[in-house]
Amino acid sequence: MTNGPLDEQQLWSAFQSGNEDAYTSLYRLHVKAMYRYGMSLVSVSEAFVFDCIHDVFTEIWVKRERLSIPENVRYYLLKSLKVRIIHLLQRQEKPHSSLTREEFDDLWSEPSIDELYVQKEEAENRQEMMRKLIALLPHRQQEAIRLRFTENMDYQEIGNILDVNRQSAQNLVYRAVQKLREWLI
């Protein structure tokens, strides 16, 4: 990251006092991460992801004077985005899903040796292979490693986003990395 946390916090407080340039800078710094993270959660509708990013930014503008300065702006924005996405999705389809996501992950079955072999053989290069192997992980583990390895969030923050405690968040990442290593050997 080119901008250290200090700069971002200065930007944030400038935005809070109504500075539109600072607000725009924050948008430009984080919109790509919000977009990719949003799309990884609901890949079916780009327009929906745009709407949710729109809502997050307009809401912080309205509430700017009442907000505190987040320690990690990216974490704060991604968390807000996820809350918004889930809020809208829940409003859209009334919950008749009886499975929670944790339960769903428990039902996840380990790919067979053959399946692994096919994925590894079919990949044209190492990047492709790694992408396919990651796609075989349970969804929450995938989300956790995206947040850990791309968005560089700490386990406490990942836990907050995934609604689990710090230790569970670390376990998710640990299990994902463990599996990947196992599959690679």
Partner: peptide
């Protein structure tokens, strides 16, 4: 290796036009 596998995710493309439009 994990980062390599997340390349597609990291590079999810958001066009300049879309970024401006949303802003």
């Amino acid at each position: 290796a994990v980062q390599l596998g997340l390349t597609d995710y990291t590079r999810t493309y958001l066009s300049k036009e879309a970024e401006e439009e949303l802003l």
